[in-house]
């Protein structure tokens, strides 16, 4: 078992490490300080953060509803909120573009794509957390004089905050790794003063453009930069308690 686990880990790590053969510390440093790359990272992190916030604002109430109700409507809603996982990413871009053409090449478009592909993670994390917590705490709080809303915000949400944060971080990670939908909807994002000073690409699109211009070896350096950024997200996620459990639950579709 251990051998298989190590092999699986190597399958992930070795290709990533192999990119290191095609770059130098000097190239990495200059890429990190390249204003175009930095702007691309900034756009991706900003839109990723906004998307994660939207995922929490939508996903927590939705997850609460799914956790506390049953019946056809709940099942239908739960299935719909899981749909983005199975939709090809390119199709997500086409669907969003046809639905809301005015978000083409805009920051809102980037955020919309990230929310679309990442919302399921927050919803599922919140739902699992609320199911596991049960309704006993909110009932206890209500009998102690708290309205349902106060009981939720003073007891239920704080007690579920860590798993929900873990889910939101997964949504964020999923959003910043998106590419297919950006290729259709938001591959060159228009500036918005003063939030976004110049036009730029999401990270994945930027790396793709470098690859088109300079080939596989030429794209290695910027790819490493983006992998390091993505790793930073996951390290943060790891220290949000309970993220592993959420990930496992989500992956087995509970």
């Amino acid at each position: 078992m251990l051998a298989i686990a190590i092999l699986a880990a190597l399958f992930i790590v070795l290709p990533l490490l192999s990119m290191g053969w095609y770059t130098t510390f000097g190239d990495l440093a200059s890429t990190f300080t390249n204003p175009a790359v930095d702007l691309s990272i900034y756009l991706t992190m900003l839109s990723g953060g906004l998307a994660a916030l939207v995922c929490v604002l939508i996903g927590v109430p939705a997850g609460y509803y799914l956790a506390r109700t049953s019946g056809l409507a709940t099942k239908l809603l739960g299935s719909v909120l899981e749909l983005p996982i199975m939709i090809p990413h390119f199709v997500v871009g086409i669907a969003l573009l046809l639905f809301a053409p005015f978000i083409f090449q805009s920051l809102i478009g980037v955020v919309a794509v990230m929310v679309f592909v990442g919302l399921s993670y927050t919803v599922k994390a919140a739902e699992s957390s609320f199911v596991e917590l049960g309704d006993g705490y909110e009932k206890a709080a209500q009998t102690l004089g708290s309205s349902p809303m106060k009981a939720f915000f003073s007891v239920v949400f704080p007690m579920s905050a860590r798993p929900i944060a873990g889910g939101a971080l997964l949504s964020w990670a999923r959003g910043i790794s998106e590419m297919g939908a950006f290729l259709v909807l938001a591959y060159f994002v228009s500036p918005i003063s003063p939030i976004l000073p110049a036009a730029t690409n999401p990270m994945s699109i930027y790396a793709y453009q470098v690859y088109q211009l300079y080939g596989v070896r030429g794209a290695a350096t910027v790819s490493i930069v983006y992998v390091l950024v993505a790793m930073a997200v996951f390290v943060a996620a790891k220290y949000a308690n309970g993220w592993k459990e959420i990930f496992v639950r989500y992956s087995v579709g509970e």
Binding site: A140, T143, P148, K150, A151, V155
Partner: peptide, 20 residues
Amino acid sequence: LPAHRRGIGYVLQRPYLFAN
């Protein structure tokens, strides 16, 4: 009246203490 306005104390089977 809703539960929070009834002024009735309720001790459930499990203590349901708020961990936060």
